[in-house]
Design a binder for these strands. Structure first.
Lengths: 101, 101
DNA sequence: TTGCTATATTGGAATTTCTCGCTATATGGA
DNA sequence: TCCATATAGCGAGAAATTCCAATATAGCAA
């Protein structure tokens, strides 16, 4: 159930994906148009897409990559998919990286 | 004079390069055949190559990549080039990453 | 069912990375 | 000077990544 450090590094080796993860730290500030409480459920794909300025398919792909690396989780509510940070795994990754290098 | 976090992540997004940087943490243990004090001058390319099991040209490329990312430094002494970690920049990178994500 | 919206998936072109073998260069010794 | 060794740099082919448009799918409402 732990993080693969190489998967996480691969996911973060892309400025857009890195920025998405960073912005999700303070979703209320960075995605103010999100109406459902982002701290609770996350931020939906289309709002992330709008901010990132990339196509819908690319953002969907990037969010899937971040999820595969276990840095975010997603949940579907009705037609929307909400993504939010997996704080425990992000902290675990940072610790692993710190210990390794 | 600071580190570019995207350059560093790119350099580390490769298991071989990540392993090289990790092994350079304890060069006396991981590269015992190195005769000149590795803590002082670093480890020479051919010894790193032998351990990594990759071609000489690939290792030379990887070490250059790590150096471009400012995670290691090199110095030439006679015919040999010695690489060692840039501890200050590595720590700075970890801190930047920690603050960002 | 039909149609609309949100997201995921697929396919493809351009670019980058990976990794090698080969060659070039630099150093030091005979 | 000539040779041997250590490292860097130059193609090149295979694989991976980037990113889009187009298509598919899921959910909801009429």
């Amino acid at each position: 159930m732990s993080i693969d450090i190489n998967d996480a590094l691969k996911a973060l080796d892309n400025p857009a994906r890195l920025a998405i993860l960073a912005k999700l730290k303070d979703p209320r500030k960075n995605y103010p148009e999100q109406e459902v409480d982002p701290e609770q459920v996350g931020v939906c794909v289309s709002i992330i897409q709008e901010r990132a300025g990339l196509s819908q398919s690319t953002i969907s792909l990037y969010l899937t990559a971040l999820q595969r690396a276990k840095l975010v989780t997603s949940q579907r509510i009705g037609p929307w998919t909400y993504y939010k940070r997996d704080e425990a795994n992000i902290a675990a990754f940072l610790k692993q990286l710190q210990d390794l290098i």
